[in-house]
Design a protein around this nucleic acid. Sequence first.
DNA 1: AAGTGTGAACTTTTTCACAGCT
DNA 2: AGCTGTGAAAAAGTTCACACTT
Lengths: 212, 212
Amino acid sequence: MKIKELPEKTLKRLIIYLKVLENLDKQNIDFISSEDLAKRCGVNSAQLRKDLSFVGSLGTKGVGYSIRSLKFRLKNFLGRTREWNLILGGVTPLGIFLLENTNLQKEGFYFLAAFDINEENIGKIYNGISVYSLDQLSYILNVIKVDIGVIATDENPHLYLKAFTDQKIKAILNLSKIPLFLEDPEIRIENFSFLIALTKLSYFLKEIKDEN
Amino acid sequence: MKIKELPEKTLKRLIIYLKVLENLDKQNIDFISSEDLAKRCGVNSAQLRKDLSFVGSLGTKGVGYSIRSLKFRLKNFLGRTREWNLILGGVTPLGIFLLENTNLQKEGFYFLAAFDINEENIGKIYNGISVYSLDQLSYILNVIKVDIGVIATDENPHLYLKAFTDQKIKAILNLSKIPLFLEDPEIRIENFSFLIALTKLSYFLKEIKDEN
DNA sequence: AAGTGTGAACTTTTTCACAGCT
DNA sequence: AGCTGTGAAAAAGTTCACACTT
């Protein structure tokens, strides 16, 4: 099926290409060259063509890429032509923000339920999504099919991770400030926090200061 | 000053090491081997030692690393022993979440002001932080010194980027769904969105499905 | 004439393996 | 005896450059 494993960095760039193509499509542009698209994505054109070659042979020699068609092929390749069901672990301000965020729904990511371990949060409803006790997870999963578990609390993220993976959830978005890792290659964890992003910037700023 | 440019991936891992060390320090553990720390960070021990060698010679042969001391050295290296001043562009739900989030303050990132282009948001105050018109940016910057600009709106992120960089802000955290790029190597942009993280997971899930 | 797709060359990053310090 | 720090080897990722298609 796959000829060669897709490099992580290529995956990240493909996602960017898709987003940039979606914006170009809105502007009613039909065709684009690798040169032009690459510039808009902050990479060079050879890189872009090599990255796209993982997806297939998508362009027309002498012409370039059809924006609409490339967008569709990329979207499909990235698993974004279908919808995915999510659950939330941790009804924090960040968690509530995600439940109430309609943007993710527009992109095909649907929160179906939220879970918490604090009694006072259980039974609440945000944007039509109910909060259950984490103990009830396996019971609820009899009724709904879940693809991705999102952890949004700094208080015991491991607890949610264990509950989710025990229930055979294979994809985890960890937004807690504690990075999480598992040996199991069957389970994919994406660790992200604002703090990581801000620290990259603080390193950069410190470096430019030290140079002067 | 720098002997060799720090690879982007090394930077990302150093940030993870720091976070994991902070947690170990809370548990009152004194020393750790590269083997043990590496396992907790999802990398191998040679990788960890090589990464740390960019920071300096930090361990004791035959013994390992002092958690407290390594933590401090890393924190310093990453520019996290000082405080950084932030401004927000775009008073969206995500933006308001960030203004009200006290975690970032605890880690040394302080929002000093927020800016918006919509009349109805201007003059509001969140967590003691005032919202100004984006037009007033240069005026406000006479009074405060800003290190990082955070863009938190999908509506005209380019406008905020231009305003920020025109005012010589060198570090940008872009949380809009539109990735932003600049040629200028003096300016660092971190693009992040939940959508990117979720798309990585959707690709992974699609792949494991396709294999069966 | 223009621009893709891709082997081959090059560069960077990771892993190995061990000398050397405690 | 144990574990770091690091050259050297291996692997992975990027860029070049051009044959080939439209």
